[in-house]
Design a protein around this nucleic acid. Structure first.
Lengths: 208, 208
DNA sequence: AAAATTAGTATCGTTTCGCTACTAATCTGC
DNA sequence: GCAGATTAGTAGCGAAACGATACTAATTTT
């Protein structure tokens, strides 16, 4: 019984790593290395609180030094623009240039996105949900932050309704207003929440 | 519409690569490098037709040269045993030593397996199924073989019933008999089978 | 104001890995 | 059969990735 569970857990784990590796494998496209592609992808999807070198380092599972190196090369190649943080003089913000946005259309991991896109909407949502839970489990075990979207974050406040002087959404952790487009960006400060919403989406997908 | 589909496909793709990287990240355990752990895992799960350097190279998304190097180090450390193939003088077979089997209990990607194991049986099976489909899609796109288990392979013949002189299962591609334990091992020659067969095999395996 | 913490960078040495070249065994076509 | 092509595996080189350490500068703590 336990053995069987172990067994198919192993199968799933192998599928995940294999899939990740294969999709990531064809890396050296358009003169960018796999690590550089990862960084570009990260800065493309991260929200404004998370577009810093150390956040990327943590996301990418590497050291700040390595991350710094990757970022430096992207800045020198004109894919990222570095900007000092006004709030904290130590921090730096990285933003994508138009050149970067253009080249992301050739992202080598596009086939993986397409493979996911080929699934039914329900299956895809279910999949995202399950993977998110697994990520939470693994991140917790490794003492890392899971990185998730505001849309399913415990810190999210607000209901999208505009009241006078109030933003439609807000991050309860940072006390910062959020607009709708930001809800689906990655954040370092993500904390798993909304168990009910999760379960709801989950059971719905399972019926498919 | 299409944009939204793209969007959440991207989310899923990112989850997969992130999960793979995080779990794989904590790699340098017990004096083995991440690549060596991968190899060990591969040779632990691959069937006897697939335990060759080139098969591992393809699975691991790398070149034969690199794979050869990784394997060499494992052999010299006493984790793998090299054996010449009698059928094909060019080929080599690698088998795990007891030392390797013992160390696999410390597999750094164990947390990922546990995260998968924490799911419900139905969710896990569904997940494996979906990931398998995605892998097929990606592998096809990249011109690589998807590597799967006999249990859901189009080449599998037989129904598990022992008739006189006939093995319970057989690989229709290689014309080789298969025993039950081999049905859940990885094979290079895997080819996606009919969806109905997949479902059947899966539900049967679940009962085991 | 001193000490501790944090963000980021620089540098070094190891490891990984793609690439090319090579050997040896097997397969193909004439 | 036999010459040429193909395939399995290895060797070695150079580039890239990355962990580790050490460092600067800004911020927070006490």
């Amino acid at each position: 019984m336990t053995k069987k569970r172990q067994m198919s857990g192993r199968t799933v784990a192998e599928l995940v790593t294999h899939l990740g590796r294969i999709a990531h494998g064809e890396g050296f496209v358009d003169d960018l290395t796999p690590a550089q592609w990862s960084a570009l992808r990260y800065f493309s999807g991260a929200n404004r609180f998370s577009r810093a070198p150390s956040a990327f380092a943590e996301y990418h599972g590497t050291t700040r030094g390595t991350a710094s190196q990757t970022i430096k090369s992207l800045v020198s190649q004109g894919y990222l623009i570095r900007r000092r943080s006004e709030a904290d003089g130590r921090s730096a913000h990285l933003d994508l240039t138009d050149k970067a946005k253009a080249i992301l259309a050739d992202d080598p991991s596009l086939t993986l996105m397409q493979a996911a896109g080929a699934l039914s909407t329900a299956a895809r949502r279910h999949l995202a949900n399950v993977l998110e839970r697994m990520l939470g489990h693994v991140a917790l075990e490794h003492g890392k932050r899971p990185f998730g979207m505001c849309i399913s974050c415990a810190h999210l406040k607000g209901d999208g309704c505009c009241r006078e002087g109030k933003p439609p959404y807000e991050c309860g952790f940072l006390g910062e207003p959020l607009d709708e487009a930001e809800l689906e960006q990655l954040c370092v400060n993500y904390e798993a929440g909304k168990a009910s919403a999760v379960k709801h989406a989950f059971s719905r997908a399972a019926l498919r």
